[in-house]
Design a protein around this nucleic acid. Structure first.
Length: 261
DNA sequence: ATGTCCTCTCTTAGAGGA
């Protein structure tokens, strides 16, 4: 089973790219972020025609998250990260897909930092850690995938020294990410590739993709109940080179079937 | 500072966000 996460940077503007990639990659489950579309402008019919059911939480202009499933039944559990009734950003959706709980998240960017946006980022991270801990306590197969807007380590940026004044690389979110993983999650891509420079994002500016001046921002974390099934991981880097591409590329994992473990 | 690209609107240019 292949599970992917992809920040679309506008699902309607990227629809041809998204459909082309779905056709090529054939993922079974997909977490999408930055839909940049209100709830009623989600391209449900185009995705159904491509063979995908979906649950989504849209928002006018910003944010927006969705979970797609090709064959497995999809049941939405919640579309808000618990812990702040006043938070009206569409940044989280969670669904039971087959026998797995799939959580799709779009963590706040946090720039400029320091400032109120950075404070919001860290408050959101705190809520995420609390909810993630609860999910682990359920002792079920959980995948926590999305755009974390965090460069976890120096290895995850082409020139880390250039990111020290950026909220993606501030010590606080890096520590929060580390603490989150330490709860008991497996960072799939780092687990498969402990030392390689692997990127999921390349800025539109300054020919970043052409220079492979990238960042690893999109992560797929696995609970202990599913981690042993991890057999492969990767990034569909070439998709970033397509015309009208998002500034992110799809990141994915492959899980062995349950009976094979 | 700049570069680019998305989506929105008191729209065809500028603002805000990433």
């Amino acid at each position: 089973m292949k599970i992917a996460t992809y920040n679309t940077n506008g699902i309607n503007g990227r629809l041809p790219v998204l459909l082309k990639w779905l056709e090529e990659a054939q993922p079974d489950i997909v977490c999408l972020q930055e839909l940049k579309a209100p709830q009623d402008k989600f391209p449900q019919n185009a995705l159904l025609a491509a063979g995908y059911n979906a649950v989504w939480h849209g928002q006018k202009m910003w944010n927006g998250v969705a979970i797609l499933s090709k064959d497995l039944p999809l049941q939405e559990v919640r579309n808000v990260l618990p812990g702040d009734d006043g938070d009206d950003h569409s940044r989280y959706i969670e669904a039971i897909v087959g026998r797995m709980l799939v959580c799709c998240l779009y963590l706040p960017n946090g720039n400029p930092a320091p400032g109120p946006k950075f404070d919001y980022k860290m408050a959101w991270f705190k809520r995420l850690k609390k909810h993630a801990k609860y999910l682990l306590s359920e002792e079920v197969p959980v995948i926590l995938a999305g755009d974390y807007n965090v460069i976890p380590t120096e290895k995850d940026a082409y020139k880390p020294e250039r990111w020290t004044d950026n909220a993606l690389f501030f010590p606080e979110p890096r520590k929060a990410y580390k603490d989150l993983v330490k709860q008991g999650w497996i960072d799939s891509i780092r687990h498969i590739y402990p030392d390689e420079a692997i990127y999921t994002f390349w800025d539109y500016l300054r020919n970043a993709y052409g220079r492979n001046a990238g960042l690893r921002l999109d992560h797929l974390l696995l609970s202990p109940q599913v981690a042993p099934r991890l057999v492969a991981a990767g990034v569909d880097t070439h998709v970033r080179g397509w015309e009208k591409s998002s500034d992110h590329a799809p990141a994915w994992i492959v899980l062995a079937d349950e009976e094979e473990t």
